[in-house]
Simulated assay, not measured.
Amino acid sequence: MNTFTKAIAAALAFALTPVAYAGTEAFVAENCAGCHALSRNDAGSRAELLGPPLFHAGAKFRKDWMVRWLQSPTRIYPAGWFPPRHIESTPEGDVIDAASLVDHPALDAERAQAVADWLATLPAPEGVELSTDYTPAKVAMRMGQLDFRRFKGCVACHRDEPDSGGVSGPELYTAWERLQPGYLLNYIGDPDAWHDQPLMPVLEMNEQAVQKLVNYLYTIAETQP
């Protein structure tokens, strides 16, 4: 069974599993492991997965966001978790093969809350210390855009607004709503600590430069209607 077929089977099982399934941890293992790594030992090759690893979800995602997103999923990775599987080369350039992407199934409110509660217990990787003394501050939007798009080149892989920017990484115009500040600060500085095979390069930035990027993501969130 190939990865795409496994994903379809997992999605069907996810949607059809009754709410009375015995235990949230068992539900996650049964329905999520087909697309996500639930432990670092299960991470394997990036090409074997259809979604990001979840073994550090409690230190990465905001729980209230997880509850909402699991009920009404939207695409975070424009070209999927493994972009080469979903990108087609054309005379006009690379385009996303939308038909090859698998939608995440939605959960009802009760199950979404239970799954989010369980995921929120999963800690940061061993040895990672998350910053707790960061206070977000707005930056001038124009300067933040220049820093993100030109000076640091983040736009090559990420989008800071819909339909504008790279597709090999997650979109970041909803990053502040989705991700914990401590995760953003630590991951930007040391992605290797979170994944064994990150596509994110290790950028030589001091703490002030990292905070400037995170402040830009905060500013995007604060200026959205």
Score class of each variant (00 low, 15 high):
120 A>P: 04
100 S>Y: 02
157 C>F: 11
104 H>Q: 09
110 E>F: 01
126 E>L: 11
125 P>N: 04
114 A>E: 03
129 E>G: 07
154 C>Y: 13
152 K>H: 15
103 D>R: 13
89 S>Q: 15
155 V>M: 12
100 S>W: 04
113 Q>A: 15
94 D>C: 01
151 F>Y: 13
121 T>D: 05
111 R>S: 02
153 G>C: 07
145 Q>M: 14
106 A>S: 05
101 L>I: 09
122 L>E: 00
121 T>N: 02
151 F>W: 11
125 P>C: 03
99 A>F: 07
121 T>E: 09
87 I>K: 04
121 T>W: 00
89 S>N: 13
117 D>F: 01
136 P>L: 13
152 K>N: 14
95 V>C: 02
112 A>K: 00
108 D>T: 02
98 A>Y: 05
136 P>R: 11
118 W>Q: 09
136 P>S: 13
120 A>T: 06
108 D>C: 06
134 Y>D: 13
98 A>Q: 14
104 H>S: 10
139 V>T: 10
122 L>N: 02
147 D>I: 08
148 F>C: 06
147 D>T: 12
122 L>T: 01
145 Q>A: 15
98 A>F: 05
134 Y>E: 11
112 A>R: 00
158 H>F: 07
130 L>P: 14
122 L>D: 00
142 R>K: 15
155 V>P: 05
114 A>H: 08
99 A>T: 10
146 L>T: 15
95 V>M: 02
122 L>V: 00
128 V>N: 01
128 V>I: 15
89 S>R: 07
95 V>Q: 07
109 A>V: 12
97 D>C: 06
151 F>I: 09
113 Q>C: 09
124 A>I: 11
128 V>A: 05
141 M>E: 07
136 P>K: 11
135 T>I: 11
99 A>W: 03
140 A>P: 06
88 E>D: 14
139 V>D: 01
